[in-house]
Design a protein around this nucleic acid. Structure first.
Lengths: 333, 333
DNA sequence: CTGAAAGCGCTAACAG
DNA sequence: CTGTTAGCGCTTTCAG
C-alpha cells in the first residue's frame, strides 16, 4: 500500500502539503500542487479513508435498516436511497432487521462502532429505544415509509390518506357503490390512514360505511385469498380496494375461483404500485407510492443533516399517484 | 465518546490490558479481566472499529456489487448474502452497477479506499479490468450467478444446463412434443446453457431441434410478449420453455390474447422461481435457482477467503429444483 | 501476566 | 504558502 509519505517523498514536499492537495485546500502553490498530483498519479496513490475518517470524524458511509430487502417495496426504496447516496459520494450498508427489535439494536450498535455518519430506518412502527437513544445523541437519523409518533425526527412518507381517498373516489366515479376494503393489521398507521381515506371518499359520496365490507388484519397473499373467499359471497361488493398490491392479488385469485372476471364482474384496486401490479393478471390499477423518490428524499435529508446538524426536524409527505391499468372498470362493465 | 483510555483509567490498568480483554487474548488474569469488563460495562464502552481496523487490517465489511437491487433475483441473493455476513459479524455495502463498467470501477476503487475486506460480484458477464486487478492483488473476491471465463476466481452459480434439461424433460414426460424455447440474449452464458439443456432433453427423447421454435435475444416482459405474438401462430408449440420467469409472464400474456388457456391449451415453464412465479396467473411452474443459497455460499466462501487467503479457487455449482405449479399440464389436458 | 512505547495513515493546528 | 508536530483510538511488539 502506498501512503501519503511515499507521495510526499516522491514530490519532495511534506505530508501536510500532500494532505492539502488531497483535500483541495486552497492555498497551495500551483507548482507544488502539480508536483504532488503527478507523484500521486505515478504512484497510483489513493488515500486510506479509514485513517482520514479517524481524524475527520466522518466515513461517508450510512446505514439503511429495512425489514427485508427481498420485499420489492423496500428494494425500491433502497435503490432510490443508494442512488442518491452514491451521487454524494456515500455508501450504504444494508441491514435486514425482520422487524426484530433485537436484531435492530445489534445492527445499530455495530454500525455506531463502525462510525457510520447516519442511519435511515425503514423499519420501526413505534418509537423504540434505538431511535430515542440516537435522537438524544443528536445522531443523524431519518425515518422512512412509516411514521412514528412521539419523537421529533425527520421522516419521509407517502400521503396514504390522500392516496386511498383518491383511489376510492375513482372507483366511485366508475359507478361503484358497494366497495370493500381489504387491509393489513390496524396497528400499522398507514393501514389506518388508508382506511380513513376510503371512508372519507364513501362519506363524501353519500355512501354508507359498512362494517361488513371492511376486512383488516391481513398480512399475506394467502390471508387475502382466504378472507375474500369468506366475505365475498355475502357482501358481494362490485369493487374491492386492497391496501397493498399483494393483498390485491390474493383477492383476485379468490374472485377467479368464484368464476368471476376482473374487471367485468368485480373491480380491484391495489396500493403501492410495486412491480407486482404490472405483473398481475389482469395488470392492477394501483395507488402508487413514489418508492424511489422516498428513498431519494430520505437520503438527501440524511446527508443534509450529516453536513449541517442544526437543521430542524421535518416531516416530508410525498404525493401518491393513481396508476390505472386493467383491473378496474365501470360498474356493470 | 468513551475510549480505551477511559476504561484503562477506570479499571486501573494500561490500555494494552484493556485491548487484550477486548480481543479475548488468553493470558489475562481472571481478576484483571473482570475489573476491565466491569469498567467497560459501567462506562458503556464500545471499541471504535475504525481505529481497530487501521491496525488490524480488517474492517469486517464487504462490498456486494449487483446490477440492480430492485430486481428480485438480486434482492434474494443479497438477502442470502447479508444473512450470512451478519452471522459472521460482517456488514455489507451494496452497490448498484447497472452493468456499467465505469460505475463498477468507481465503486471498486471507493470500497478499496474504505478498506473493505472483500468483494462479491454479481454483475460481470465477462472478465474485466477490475476483477483482473483484484485477482492480481490477491484481494478476496467471489463471483456469483454468472460465470466468467479466463480467470481463476471463486464463483458460485446454479446448474443452468441441468435445470433446463430437467424442466424440458418434465414437459416431455407430460406428453409434449413441440416445445419452444424463449430466451435472453445468447451472449449471456446462462442462456446458452439453458438452451443446451433444452436441446439435450429433446434429443434424448428423439425429438427434433427446430430452429423455428427457438427465439432468443429477449430481455423484457414486453419483448417476450411481442415475440410470442409473432412466432406462436405459425409454430404452435404445445409447450413453451421460457428461460426466466419474467419472459414466461410475457409469453403467457401473449397466449391469453390469442384466447388460449394456460395450461389447458399451452403449458408454460419458467426459470429462476423468483417471486414472480408465485404471483403469476396461473402460478408458474419454474426451475428454481437457489438464490438465497447462492448468496449464502458466496458469502461463506468470501469470508473463508478473507480469513484464510491461501485457499484454492473453486467453482461451486448448486443444483436447481423444478417447482411445479399450475402453468403446466398434460399435452391436450 | 502486564505496561511502555511505537505506530496504522491521515488531518489539523501552529509556526514560520 | 509550507513544514513540524501532535494526535484520532486502537493493536502489537518488547521488556519485565
Amino acid at each position: 500500500m502506498t501512503t501519503i509519505y511515499d507521495v510526499a517523498k516522491a514530490a519532495g514536499v511534506s505530508i501536510a502539503t500532500v494532505s492539502r492537495v488531497i483535500n483541495g485546500y486552497p492555498f497551495v502553490a500551483e507548482k507544488t500542487r502539480e508536483k504532488v498530483l503527478q507523484a500521486m498519479q505515478e504512484l497510483n496513490y489513493a488515500p486510506n479513508l479509514l485513517a482520514a475518517a479517524l481524524m475527520k470524524k466522518n466515513t461517508y458511509t450510512v446505514g439503511l435498516l429495512i425489514p427485508d430487502i427481498s420485499n420489492p417495496f423496500f428494494a425500491e426504496i433502497t435503490r432510490g436511497a443508494e442512488d442518491t447516496a452514491n451521487k454524494f459520494g456515500f455508501n450504504i450498508i444494508i441491514c435486514n432487521t425482520d422487524n426484530d427489535p433485537e436484531k435492530e439494536t445489534k445492527y445499530v450498535n455495530l454500525l455506531l462502532q463502525k462510525s457510520v455518519d447516519g442511519l435511515i430506518f425503514a423499519t420501526s412502527e413505534i418509537v423504540n429505544q434505538n431511535i430515542l437513544m440516537l435522537k438524544e445523541k443528536q445522531f443523524p437519523i431519518v425515518l422512512i415509509a412509516r411514521e412514528v409518533e412521539g419523537v421529533e425526527v425527520d421522516v419521509v412518507l407517502a400521503n396514504n390518506f390522500q392516496g386511498a381517498y383518491e383511489g376510492v373516489k375513482y372507483l366511485i366515479s366508475l359507478g361503484h357503490r358497494t366497495i370493500a376494503f381489504v387491509g393489513e393489521p390496524l396497528n400499522i398507521k398507514s393501514t389506518r390512514e388508508r382506511q380513513a381515506g376510503y371512508e372519507k371518499a364513501l362519506q363524501e359520496a353519500g355512501l354508507p360505511v359498512d362494517e361488513g365490507l371492511i376486512i383488516t388484519g391481513l398480512k399475506t397473499l394467502e390471508d387475502a385469498f382466504k378472507a375474500t373467499k369468506a366475505f365475498y359471497p355475502q357482501a358481494r361488493p362490485s369493487a374491492i380496494f386492497a391496501a397493498n398490491d399483494v393483498l390485491a392479488i390474493g383477492v383476485i385469485r379468490a374472485l377467479k375461483e368464484f368464476g368471476l372476471s376482473i374487471p367485468q364482474d368485480v373491480s380491484v384496486l391495489g396500493f403501492d404500485d410495486t412491480i407486482f401490479a404490472a405483473i398481475a393478471e389482469p395488470p392492477l390499477t394501483s395507488v402508487a407510492q413514489p418508492m424511489r423518490q422516498m428513498g431519494k428524499m430520505a437520503m438527501t435529508r440524511l446527508i443534509n443533516r450529516i453536513q449541517n446538524k442544526e437543521e430542524k426536524e421535518r416531516k416530508i409527505v410525498l404525493p401518491t399517484k393513481l396508476v390505472i391499468r386493467s383491473s378496474t372498470n365501470f360498474y356493470g362493465g
